[in-house]
Design a protein around this nucleic acid. Structure first.
Length: 820
RNA sequence: GCCCGAGUGGCGGAACAGGCAGACGCAACGGACUUAAAAUCCGUUGUCCCUUGUGGACGUGUCGGUUCGACUCCGACCUCGGGCACCA
């Protein structure tokens, strides 16, 4: 018997599949499509185990879909713009372009060595001018629709990456990429107006039935909808200052008023007063502290009195106006009504500065009138609130809002946490923002026919000193498209998340030359039926991609409003209980594994060791187990082929029927498991079938096997195995003498009658405890079950001298006898 | 602090709608084959107890509840992991 030579087999079939282009597809309206997509990789040079897991899962889904008769789109590409390319340039003096394309070549080879069934001819590389041109085109369309604007404000700045970051890219006060503490900088930057789509982005989450609840919750929290009211307070000079509050019911308990230190009104209020000096000092201090102090767990609240008072619209009371570091300019209106009795932060602030605390909500069954040691933030009955006294707080909130509305001093309002998406990056290796600054005409978008704005190659990339493009004279200096006078180009590039926000649309028609994608192709393929990737993209990428899709739909370019119908978030691959990392020295290199055991073993193990959503602990012994299994498959299939040449096949005896039953049972189990992504148990079911096949020889004796049966077992086994271990399945399929690829074969169907056992073990319980197991016919009636159970010898010792109270019968499963 | 998710043998994990807890794999142990080893094939393997049987008790983080019956449902708690974190 020839040995299982995985290296030879895998090379052979990868070549054949490529030559025959067996996964080629076209938009065929007669066929039902399936768009299977895994998040495309950043070309860092080598694939890691996370990629192997991601792409192995996707490949099973794609191959299964194809065998089920769907027209399957399963593309791959590279998210090729980004910082690591520039870092490599600084470190090794390689040009980012060269570094990136070389890495893509390496990674493409590695992905091919895994035997993944991609539509390779649809590859998308985001740093290709053919692709980024359309990113610029979309930027201009967004600009025309008023979804792009430039604004001066405080932004997150990473001093290590030397660029600004979007809010989503700040994690725990540090840069999402390098963890450097993020600073605040006052800069003029480009923004995408994602807040125009807050409503649909939030509400359409409900439509995403195929998304994990967890991801939807994370997006929901990120968007952060709060219901409450806008309330107008009036300064002594008659000027109105509006606040947002979620608790209008506590309005009577407002004992002071707070402004964000950056609030524009502050200057006006203190100018020329004795308070000016302290306020200025305080503001400077806050400006310096910013994120560093704000990230520590328990921060003391600091503030400073402005010397002015403001009038509460419900009771006309004058309360002092302070500025406080915990009031954020970016949320709400940058002003807050402080109710220390019912807000923890206000309470701490009031205690520190000895400001009055007034109870206005009385909780049920508790007397708080003797003083508070902490704020009461729950519901209750309103007190000290004039005509609203005695009202439940929830009702009171609405009543006060209604009252304010009548007085024209406020109204119900909804506020969101989501802020606009800052897309400017002071980096070279990204998509240039297609904007020109003209002294005469101001900000002028690049004309469509001048796209793409080509990213020049001849730049000097240095570690310090800002954007390299800004120093590139020929790039910067241009002419104004409007007045033809001298003008300067924008030198910032776009956040790379803009590139990954629409690549799934490009895959539908990757060679389209007149538009980002062909509308009819997109309408055929979209939405993505199954998207697979890491949980780390739960907010950023998935939110941005949803935003782009919605805008593109509103532009009339594609009909879908949500890009990904079903989402599978795979768990991390860990080793020794920790994420694989160079510094921990626990990295397992996929190339080594493929070299030692082959791609099929690598794929099989990674799918078998854990369900896709869960963490996967890498095990060197585990991979040997998978390797052992494939060898076992190899031997039994070859043995079956040989036996079927000389076996006897005159009818089926009990042992034959048992194996046939096992085949059908396994098809049923594997089909159901793959549909539900229980890939680990699907593989275990295939293992059981192989074990049953071995047992069959033991039971039967070598010479007496049924040849037709063994041919059928082989055929079904290889079809089931094909999505998981494509090379070995194909090789054995050929060895069997089959014409055509196993991967173009039909997914096997099962016969429910054949899958069913002829006999079942009837479980007999006394008071819920198993006392006997009796073999009975599978079509046993409930009456027979009861009779059989009660006649059990073993039961006697438990029922003797006791009264049978009740007999519970679960059809075709068990009988529970209740005794007393 | 708030919001999710998870706790099952020595280990990874299974039990799909409340009905045999521990499938499958790893590790370990035993047998066959071999001069021997590896590989392979066949077994055993949750814990404890005794009168060693076709025996019994216990057992899915802890405590309680619902039920004829609970890994599964309900309540409280503990531990771990993740997300958000001055959001008014």
């Amino acid at each position: 018997m020839a040995k299982y030579d995985f290296a030879k087999i895998e090379k052979k079939w990868q070549k054949k599949w490529e030559e025959s282009n067996i996964y080629e597809i076209t938009e065929d309206l007669k066929l039902t499509k399936k768009y299977i997509l895994e998040m495309f990789p950043y070309p860092s040079g080598n694939i890691h185990m996370g990629h192997v897991r991601n792409y192995s899962i996707g490949d099973v889904v794609a191959r299964y879909g194809r065998m089920k008769g769907f027209n399957v789109l399963h593309p791959i590409g590279y998210d090729a713009f980004g910082m690591p390319a520039e870092n490599a340039a600084i470190k090794h003096g390689v040009h980012p372009r060269k570094w990136t394309y070389e890495n893509i070549d390496i990674m493409r080879d590695q992905l091919k060595s895994l035997g993944l069934s991609y539509n390779w001819d649809r590859e998308v590389i985001t740093c290709d001018p053919d692709y980024y041109k359309w990113g610029q085109w979309l930027f201009l369309k967004f600009y025309k629709r008023g979804l792009v604007y430039r604004k001066q404000s405080k932004v997150n700045w990473c001093s290590s990456c030397e660029t600004v970051l979007a809010n989503e890219q700040v994690e725990g006060g540090g840069c999402w990429r390098c963890s450097t503490l993020v600073e605040q900088k006052e800069l003029e930057q480009w923004y995408f107006k994602i807040t125009d789509y807050t409503g649909p982005l939030l509400n359409d989450l409900e439509k995403l039935k195929g998304w994990p609840e967890r991801v939807k919750v994370m997006q929901k929290n990120w968007i952060g909808r709060s219901e409450g009211a806008m309330v107008d307070f009036i300064l002594k000079d008659g000027k109105t200052v509006t606040v947002f509050t979620t608790r209008p019911d506590t309005l009577f308990g407002c004992t002071f008023f707070l402004l964000a230190p950056e609030h524009l009104l502050v200057d006006e209020l203190v100018k020329g007063t004795p308070y000016e000096e302290d306020i200025v000092k305080f503001r400077e201090k806050v400006a310096k502290e910013t994120e560093i102090d704000r990230t520590s767990a328990e921060i003391e609240k600091n503030g400073c009195f402005t010397g002015t008072y403001i009038i509460n619209p419900v009771n006309g009371r004058e309360v002092p106006v302070w500025i406080a570091d915990y009031v954020l300019m970016e949320y709400g209106t940058g002003a807050v009504m402080a109710v220390p009795a019912h807000d923890e932060r206000d309470f701490a602030f009031a205690k520190k500065y000895e400001l009055p605390i007034e109870l206005v909500i009385q909780p049920a069954g508790e007397d708080l009138s003797s003083g508070l040691d902490k704020a009461y933030t729950g519901e209750g009955l309103m007190i000290n609130s004039g005509k609203f006294n005695g009202m439940p707080s929830k009702e009171g909130a609405k009543a006060i809002a209604k009252f304010l509305k009548e007085q024209n001093k406020g109204e119900l309002a909804v506020n969101y946490r989501l802020r606009d998406w800052l897309i400017s990056r002071q980096r070279y290796w990204g998509n240039p923002i297609p904007i020109i600054y003209c002294d005469k005409c101001g900000i002028v978008p690049v004309s469509e026919e001048d796209l793409p704005v080509i990213l020049p190659d001849d730049v000097k990339i240095t570690e310090k000193g800002g954007s390299p493009l800004a120093k590139h004279e020929r790039f910067v200096n241009t002419v104004c498209p409007r007045c033809s006078g001298p003008a300067r180009r924008e030198t910032d590039t776009m956040d790379t998340f803009t590139c990954s926000s629409w690549y799934f649309l490009r895959y539908c028609s990757p060679n389209e030359g007149k538009l980002p994608f062909d509308g009819s192709a997109a309408n055929y393929w979209m939405p993505v039926d199954q998207y697979i990737g890491g949980i780390e993209h739960a907010i950023m990428h998935l939110l941005y991609a949803r935003f782009f899709t919605k805008v593109i739909k509103d532009m009339g370019m594609c009909e879908v409003e949500e890009p990904f119908s079903n989402l599978l978030t795979q768990g991390m691959v860990i080793k020794d209980g920790a994420k694989m990392s160079k510094s921990k020295g626990n990295v397992v290199d996929p190339n080594e594994i493929i070299k030692t055991y082959g791609a099929d073993t690598a794929r099989l193990f990674i799918l078998f060791a854990s369900p896709p959503e869960k963490e996967l602990e890498w095990s060197d012994q585990g991979i040997q187990g998978s390797y052992r299994f494939l060898n076992r498959v190899w031997r039994i299939v070859v043995r079956n082929i040989e036996s079927s040449k000389k076996g006897d096949d005159t009818g089926l005896d009990d042992t034959d029927r048992e194996l046939l039953r096992f085949v059908h049972k396994t098809i049923k189990k594997v089909t159901g498991d793959v549909e539900r992504f229980n890939l680990n148990t699907a593989i275990s079911a295939i293992m059981e079938l192989v074990n049953a096949n071995y047992k069959y020889y033991d039971d039967k004796g070598e010479g007496k096997v049924n040849s037709d049966l063994l041919t059928e077992v082989n055929e079904k086994l290889l079809l089931l195995l094909a999505p998981f271990a494509p090379h070995i399945a194909e090789e054995l399929w050929e060895t069997m003498g089959k014409i055509g690829s196993v991967h173009l074969g039909k997914w096997p169907t099962f016969d429910e009658k054949l899958a069913k056992a002829e006999e079942i073990a009837l479980i007999v319980q006394i008071n819920g405890k198993v006392r006997d197991k009796i073999t009975v016919s599978a079509d046993v009636s409930e009456e027979e079950m009861k009779k059989t159970a009660l006649s059990s010898e073993k039961l006697k010792q438990f029922t003797e001298g006791k009264e049978i109270v009740k007999v519970v019968v679960v059809p075709k499963k068990l009988v529970n006898v209740v005794v007393r």
